[in-house]
């Protein structure tokens, strides 16, 4: 972005610190979306290795059965759960559901669209994602 346009650019878009938990959710939604897209592409590559026959497939499974890949998978689980739960919240909001009703605003003008229902939805998505990730870690690393 040029100085003349004075756009905040990608850095301003992804900065989650200035506008509360809603902006954090916005940032996490994008991050998890990109992460899931990367996983999807990697997953297609992984499963396409079955064309190399049983030996090739076994080699790839051995390569991915490492602690590093287990951690990656656990993060994928967290991203999947967060993206799903928060996605439902956002889709309902996009339909005008749960965003409050128009009314005469009173100082200090707390926005009705940023109400407790949406905050609960965001925190629920984060907590559920953390729980799912811990469950994933327990399954992948457990004996």
């Amino acid at each position: 972005m040029t100085q003349d346009e004075n756009k905040e650019g990608v850095g301003g878009m992804i900065n989650p610190r200035r506008y509360g938990i809603e902006r954090v959710a916005y940032w996490l939604m994008r991050l998890s979306g990109l992460g899931l897209l990367a996983y999807f592409i990697g997953h297609i590559y992984e499963t396409s290795n079955i064309l190399r026959g049983q030996v090739g497939w076994t080699e790839l499974l051995e390569m991915t059965s490492t602690p590093f890949f287990h951690i990656i998978l656990s993060i994928v689980i967290a991203m999947c759960v967060f993206h799903t739960v928060n996605g439902i919240r956002v889709m309902l909001g996009h339909g005008g559901i749960g965003v409050g009703k128009p009314s005469r605003p009173d100082y200090p003008y707390d926005p009705a669209s940023q109400n407790y229902r949406h905050k609960i939805g965001i925190y629920s998505a984060i907590v559920l994602a953390a729980v799912a990730m811990m469950y994933g870690l327990a399954v992948l690393f457990g004996e």
């Binding site: 809603e22 605003p105 003008y109 926005p111 940023q114």
Partner: peptide, 15 residues
Amino acid sequence: HFAGSCSQVCPKGVD
């Protein structure tokens, strides 16, 4: 994308 930042900074409560 319903980030809601616009509503948080509005000085007149427009939301």
